[in-house]
Nucleic acid binder design. Structure first.
Length: 561
RNA sequence: UGGCCUAUGGUGUAAUUGGCAACACAGCUGGUUUUGGUCCAGUCGUUCUAGGUUCGAGUCCUAGUAGGCCAACCA
């Protein structure tokens, strides 16, 4: 896995700097800290690749830590899904941790803070506290309970823990600075009362620690050296450091929080609320719908872990606002699938071709390469017969020289088979072409080595024998949103940009080698794109999802005309 | 009205820390090709503005401008 010396991102520079200043390499440790309240999406994938990538680069452990301090929203179901997604991406965590593992330690530390006069129990309503908080430009004012005695605070906090109070009646606050220009330092809440069962600690606790109090201390407990998070937590750093100061022992590693800009992908949304809305309103079929930017959606769409990792690697990491074009993600999946996906033939919009000089009732099995770029992929046999399907768009009665496909009087190569010539076609009452009559050159069989087989014919078409064709449901996906940044319009709701044609379900006719395709198998339908077998596939019915189309220069030429 | 962060081609990220602005994607032009795919070659185009320091500035200083974030008992 030795890569050419790659440019370091700014976080790697920070690590390098720390190493240079004497931080022991063996003490490097990272973590990926999801809250188990939803499914992971492509943005999380970047963060996962960043943290686990750092672990790989420095041979340092990376913990998977669930930030589970809010029992109201968190569920075991999400823990399981997150673990599956991280593993699928190809990463191994050192240990699986939960912030809830540290509830007792956090409580003990909170008691110490109270005893030092650094925390107090406030007994006001949230509205009252909000009013005292001030604004970014005006300082806050002190709570009337700010100067409670240590004894009183101890007693009340103990009672909070014992479940003697209703939710919302008391909180524990850090006593910092109500006049700080950083609103987060204006006596932030450390604990609230929640009479809710937790997915791991059940009803052991009825007070739960807040994010700021929990996260840094959890990093400290795990001796995480570099705690990386997104930019919106930049202002939290001061508080992170303040909380750390309360418990820090110089003989231990002091975690360092650094922030990076979240990666934004074009033509999609990732917020839980918005994704949920797409699911609830039936715009998509579920969290793993192949149009969703969730890891499970991408997996079902046919994306590979390699493609996602390469994508994350290419887009890098920085601190500025960004909108990464989804075409870059598509490039990476094509790049990987081009190497690993076997080629097959399938016709998605069929028109029948009758080869009039091919003996009726005859059939033959022709040899086809599984991957022209990889000889080790081997070959397979495909059946040929008198009646075949080709794509409607591959035939025109008349066309100019730029049209490399089949036209009356013109010749094309049938991939892996013969050269055919279009002689005539028949139409229905509305003038739609219903059948094309061709003749074939019997000596032009692919690979036969004959002079005729070596003839240069400009166009090559994919095809499938009518009588051998396998019918399959094919789901053609397009981007979910027509706007590149659907949720950043001040005057318009993101739902207004939903692409009404993001899914088309059609029947495809496939070569019979696909009969035993397994769920998640990925193939290239030649000249069309990459497809994968959907989990809805049954023994009676094959279902394919379109992952991404091939680069289509022809479509571009037509568009420009 | 305050604080914090950011600004490099159409997009994303680099630049040996003050020394020839590079890589990938996208675009365009050719070549190869039994996939209008892949592959190969070429090409296009950039340091927010104005001052300053310096032999030399994307990098340092000053002042602007633009964008993002900050007042949940969410994370």
């Amino acid at each position: 896995m030795s890569e050419a010396p790659k440019a370091l991102n700014f976080l790697e520079h920070i690590v390098e700097e720390d190493l240079k200043n004497g931080f022991p390499k063996e003490q490097l440790r990272f973590r990926f800290p999801p809250e188990p309240n939803g499914y992971l999406h492509i943005g999380h994938a970047s963060s996962i690749c960043l943290n686990f990538g750092l672990g790989l680069r420095y041979n340092a452990p990376v913990n998977l830590r669930f930030d589970d301090t809010n029992p109201v929203k968190e569920e075991q179901e999400f823990v399981d899904a997150i673990k599956k997604d991280v593993q699928w991406l190809g990463y191994k965590w050192d240990t699986e941790r939960y912030a809830s593992d540290y509830f007792q330690q956090l409580y003990d530390w909170a008691v110490i803070l109270i005893k030092k006069g650094r925390a107090y129990v406030d007994s006001q309503t949230s509205q009252e506290m909000a009013a005292q908080k001030g604004t970014p430009t005006e300082p806050g004012t002190s709570s009337p309970f700010r100067e409670r005695t240590v004894e009183e605070n101890m007693q009340l906090f103990q009672a909070m823990k014992n479940g003697d109070f209703e939710e919302g009646t008391h909180v524990l606050r850090a006593k910092i600075d109500m006049a700080s220009s950083n609103m987060l330092m204006r006596d932030p809440i450390m604990y609230r009362i929640l009479h809710k069962a937790h997915h791991r600690t059940n009803t052991d606790w009825c007070i739960y620690p807040m994010y700021d109090w929990t996260h840094g201390e959890s990093d400290y407990i795990e001796q995480v050296s570099h705690s990386l998070c997104t930019l919106e937590f930049a202002m939290h750093r001061e508080l992170y450091d303040w909380f750390l100061d309360q418990v820090y022992d110089v003989k231990t590693v002091r975690p360092k929080q650094r922030e990076f800009a979240r990666r934004n992908l074009s033509h999609t949304v990732v917020s839980k609320r918005k994704l949920l809305k797409l699911v609830e309103e039936g715009i998509v079929a579920g969290w793993d719908d192949p149009r969703m930017p969730t890891i499970s959606g991408l997996r079902r769409r046919g994306y590979t872990p390699e493609a996602i990792r390469n994508f994350a690697d290419t887009i890098g990491i920085a601190k500025r606002e960004n909108l990464i074009d989804v075409s870059l993600l598509e490039f990476h999946v094509r790049e990987h699938l081009n190497k690993v996906a076997p080629r097959v033939m399938g016709v998605l919009d069929p028109i029948k071709v009758v080869i009039t000089n091919y003996p009726e009732g005859d059939e033959e099995w022709l040899t086809a390469e599984n991957n022209p770029g990889d000889e080790s992929a081997g070959t397979r046999q495909v059946p040929f017969s008198r009646e075949i399907y080709i794509e409607k768009s591959d035939f025109k009665e008349e066309a100019n020289r730029k049209f490399f496909r089949l036209k009356l009087g013109g010749e094309v190569r049938l991939k892996n088979a013969y050269i055919i010539k279009a002689e005539s076609c028949t139409k229905d009452a509305e003038g739609n072409i219903t059948e094309i009559q061709c003749t074939y050159d019997a000596k032009s069989k692919s690979g036969s080595g004959t002079e005729e087989s070596l003839r240069k014919v400009k166009g090559t078409l994919h095809w499938v024998s009518v009588k051998h064709a396998l019918k399959a449901e094919v789901r053609i996906y397009d981007r979910l949103f027509l706007d590149e940044s659907p949720d950043t319009h001040k005057d318009k709701d993101f739902m207004e940009f939903v692409n009404p044609d993001s899914l088309k379900i059609i029947t495809g006719y496939l070569e019979p080698s696909l009969k035993n395709a397994k769920v998640e198998d990925r193939v290239q339908f030649q000249r069309l794109g990459y497809f994968c077998v959907d989990q809805d596939t049954t023994t009676e019915k094959l279902v394919f999802n379109k992952t991404v189309g091939l680069r289509d220069t022809w479509a571009k030429i037509q568009q420009n005309n």
